[in-house]
Nucleic acid binder design. Structure first.
Length: 510
DNA sequence: AACATTAACAACCGCAAGTGG
DNA sequence: CCCACTTGCGGTTGTTAATGT
């Protein structure tokens, strides 16, 4: 059994052989850095010192040892770090009598010897968190580890990769069912985590200012009218820019929705006082009415469109999200969009959808209360606000039961409309600065929306609506609980959910 | 029992950011 | 500013244990 790598350099050959021999003895009990390490210490120490001296008694720096750590090495490292503290790993190497590079020492300490390490398999809660984190951040193992006390990035990475392989082999979705769309979608063009491998890390991204997507995605209000006849629509086309990485992620629109979205060219951009045809897209918050893109910055082709998080197209977060992405290849289309200002012109394919700058309205008190109105013959209306966090629906279900999605709205109230209909007021609450929500109105109705103030949105004459949304607090790793349940149609006049309308965006009718 | 496959784990490598002289 | 060094991160590979055939 070969246990160590033998360095190819001739000068090192003798040492390598010696090390190999020693290793063969050391490893006769399988790698175990557990509780019984102490009893072997004496023998191991002798072996170790013998090895070191035998191999390099003649002077010159011994080659740094590779391969598994022995209990004795562990003890030395542990003793040293406990006495001198962490850091200065090359000093550790020199002063602790360890023939290991500082890097190796650091790794061994961080992954195995640290006293605060939590051993054993991941429990369900940890697994749940890992999946959440991966959805949000992709392969940011260190970041995940910082949110999982006692766990190391390496541990998480190993777990994930193993899980990934297992799921891929079994043909299972990478993320659990409860994250999947309610609308079946077999198109799997989105990236898989594997595809993110080998790509540059986020901190390797060019540091150039990428204007647009942050602005476009981060704080905007999306108002879309999508005419698809009487077909229902899921208010879900998430696209977000990762807060931590700057990566752009997207959740694909189901194929059946795609048709209705794009076969009928009835998209509108909501401006402060008028509607305008799609194609007059807004960049940096400023709508243009001539079909030309107006930007104060540039949109770089280098914008990274890695999809470390929403790799699976099946994820429907039940939210209207900023961009409408035709199904085929989301990332391709995002690339196209990003790289080509033309794509935002009047000839664009609708991917950008319709955007209105919420901040533009909200920042100016005089603009509050403006009504956005769209004459809509038929269709479902979607409003969504998106900030910086992806949606998360831990309790949603795809099985048709009535387990509701989480919803962010902190307050919803109905009011009497002069026209006799019911209005719904969505109060987001300022304590949820990173909120995400969407609401779909009834098919076939005209949807009016206006900001009452900077955190309330009035939907006029919407007797029924379908809210969804959630919030995941990156700092606390906790999902903020909403005050009402989403994922079901609400009757705003009776202020109750519509029977039989749970967990389906299909409008059930009054 | 022997072999093959898979899962879990450990460790290394390359790269890049940070830091201090 | 440059350079060397340290540190941290993520990808990858290698090894062993467990399981299946």
């Amino acid at each position: 059994m070969t246990v160590v790598k033998v360095e190819p350099e001739p000068a090192l050959e003798l040492a390598s052989v010696a090390v190999a021999e020693a290793r063969a003895e050391e490893l006769s009990p399988p790698l175990s850095y557990g509780e019984d390490e102490e009893e072997e210490d004496d023998d191991e120490e002798e072996d170790d010192e013998e090895t070191d001296s035998e191999g390099y008694g003649g002077g010159g720096a011994p080659p740094l040892k590779k391969g598994p750590w022995t209990p004795q090495e562990d003890k030395r490292l542990k003793d040293y770090v406990e006495a001198h503290g962490e850091g200065n790993w090359n000093q550790v190497q020199r002063n602790a009598g360890l023939n290991r590079c500082g890097k190796s020492c650091r790794l061994r300490w961080a992954n195995h010897l640290r006293p605060d390490l939590k051993k054993g398999p991941f429990d369900a809660e940890e697994v749940d968190k890992i999946i959440k984190f991966h959805i949000m951040w992709g392969n940011k193992w260190a970041k995940m580890a910082s949110h999982l006390p006692g766990r190391t990035d390496n541990e998480i990475k190993n777990y994930w990769n193993t899980r990934l392989k297992r799921h891929q082999r079994a043909g299972l979705p990478i993320y659990p069912e409860y994250l999947l769309s309610r609308v079946p979608d077999q198109d799997m063009n989105c990236h898989t985590p594997d595809e993110s491998r080998g790509k540059k890390r986020s901190n390797e991204l060019p540091q150039e200012k990428v204007v647009g997507m942050d602005d476009l995605v981060g704080d905007f209000m999306v108002f879309q009218h999508l005419d698809y006849g009487k077909d229902p629509v899921v208010p879900a086309n998430p696209l977000k820019r990762h807060a931590s990485t700057g990566d752009l992620s997207c959740v694909q629109i189901p194929a059946n929705i795609e048709k209705t979205f794009y076969s009928n060219d009835l998209n509108y951009v909501l401006t402060k006082s008028q509607s305008m045809p799609l194609g007059s897209a807004i960049a940096n918050g400023y709508p243009t009415f001539d079909g030309n893109l107006s930007t104060s910055g540039t949109i770089h082709g280098s914008m990274k469109t890695e999809l470390p998080s929403f790799q699976c197209s099946k994820y429907d977060f039940s939210n209207g999200w900023l961009l409408q992405c035709p199904s085929a290849s989301i990332e391709q289309q995002i690339d196209t969009f990003i790289q080509s200002p033309e794509s935002m012109s009047s000839h664009n394919n609708g991917m950008l959808g319709t955007i209105i700058n919420k901040g533009d309205v909200l920042d100016d008190p005089t603009k509050s209360g403006r009504v956005f109105e769209m004459p809509v013959p038929l269709g479902c209306n979607i409003i969504s606000q998106s900030n910086d966090y992806p949606m998360w629906h831990p309790s949603s279900s795809v099985n048709g039961d009535c387990e509701p999605d989480a919803c962010l709205f902190t307050e919803i109230q109905d009011s009497n409309s002069p026209s006799g209909g019911s209005d719904a007021i969505f109060t987001l609450g300022k304590s949820y600065p990173d909120a995400i929500f969407s609401v779909a109105g009834m098919p076939g109705t005209s949807l009016e929306a206006s900001f009452l103030n900077d955190d309330s949105l009035l939907l006029k004459d919407q007797s029924y609506f379908y809210p969804s949304g959630s919030f995941f607090d990156e700092d606390s790793c906790e999902e903020r609980k909403p005050l009402i349940d989403a994922g079901q149609w609400f009757d705003s006049s009776a202020w109750k959910s519509v029977p039989g309308a749970c967990n389906t965006p299909d409008f059930p009718g009054p």
